[in-house]
Design a protein around this nucleic acid. Structure first.
Lengths: 222, 222
DNA sequence: AGCGAACTGAACTAATCAGTTCAAGTTTTG
DNA sequence: CAAAACTTGAACTGATTAGTTCAGTTCGCT
């Protein structure tokens, strides 16, 4: 019972059944990978943190490499879902420039949040760290994650342009620039996610990004 | 002449001299760290690739952790020097908007190059990967590297604003946005440095970034 | 020449870890 | 209830690694 009571302090009741062992393993895998990195993360540590025996990991996920891949793809899918949900409140028919700015300022924090939450930092850092050893991971994560959101955002911008609220030649590129303007300071400010950013600082970054974007893409008076 | 020649140190006459062992170790360390990551890189492999016995590494650099730190700081310093050199040809007194744009388009590839060369990708990826285990590394690399360049670029922008060529409220923030607009597509396009980017594609990215920047920060007609 | 410092190669320690095996226990299901 | 499937803990293998030690070699310098 020496290994058990460590896990028992975290989960009050450990169902020995085989129900959601897989999800528990993936959750623990994410935590340990994020904390230690791929190489230093030991399968034993993941098993202990998941409250599961080591062979169970091999039963469900086949091994460390596959577990890592599944964790990363899960992160990408979750991030994409959250990003798309945030895009739901993207302005689609503002009454004028002032309302457009207001609505952009309202939705931007939700979009930036997608880049600033711990899972996003973990995803990005593990991706940067391990895309050398997992060459298929970067395209896969991009496809399941940010890539799709960028396309949808581009569509939203194109609609605004079509309605005369913006002047955009290349919506996909403009969407990338929009996100870059909103997020480029985050790595430095948050020390790659290891330090919180003050709400006022974040609001300043967002406002500056939105204003630069609007100055660049607002229709010019003829 | 002896410090830079890494390619020849393989099988050729190996100078047992004591002078450039340290640099050979750091060069080999960079290569192996970039190729394998910190954890997977073995000191034996670095010693072999440097053409040096293992104890020599411990004599010169004290151990794996310290070697890694030195490699990262060396990368940051070199990147900073190259960035500052590129900034020498940043426009300082253009005759008008057209020449300003032309001069920006001329200097931008040199700046973008600083972010697109292999050492830059290695630095960024190792920094993202290991800043959890080396918490002091991120601030140190930022201070020795990008941080300084950003300040200098901000100064250049402020001079342009002061001369009436641009309208900039916060030069440091504008400098960050300038670089973000120029570089935000690089990770995706180059697969974190593992694939080359076509010159025409890169030129398109640069032109789009410059144009967005200029539309946002050009003086408005009163 | 010759002294002292640096370098070498090789072996050695102590530790870690991925993945496997197995006997015994538990859950699910027919 | 009973068979089938899953889980557990624990031990074990095979391999790798950081860091150290040391006797002998080579180099720089006077």
């Amino acid at each position: 019972m020496s290994a058990g009571d460590i896990a028992a302090t975290r989960e009050e009741r450990r169902p020995r059944g085989r129900l959601d062992k897989r999800q528990a393993i993936m959750d623990a895998g994410l935590r340990v990978f994020a904390r230690e990195g791929y190489e230093r993360a030991s399968v034993d540590a993941i098993a202990a943190e998941a409250g599961v025996a080591k062979p169970t990991i091999y039963n469900h996920l086949g091994g460390k490499e596959n577990l890592f891949r599944e964790v990363m793809l899960g992160l990408a899918r979750a991030a994409n879902a959250k990003f798309l949900a945030a895009l739901e409140s993207f302005p689609s028919d503002p009454s004028g420039p002032a309302e457009l700015r207001e609505q952009l300022l309202a939705v931007a924090p939700r979009l930036v949040d997608c880049y600033h939450e711990p899972e996003s930092w973990a995803r990005q850092r593990l991706l940067y760290a391990e895309s050398g050893r997992f060459p298929d991971l970067f395209p896969a994560v991009l496809a399941a994650g940010t890539g799709q959101g960028l396309e949808v955002l581009a569509g939203r911008l194109a609609r605004l342009a079509n309605a005369g609220h913006l002047e955009i030649a290349d919506p996909v590129r403009a969407a990338g620039q929009f996100l870059a303007l909103l997020t480029h300071e985050l790595p430095g400010l948050s020390q790659l996610g290891e330090r919180p950013i003050g709400d006022d600082v974040l609001a300043g970054v967002i406002e500056a990004g939105i204003d630069t974007f609007l100055r660049a893409f607002s229709p010019r008076p003829a």
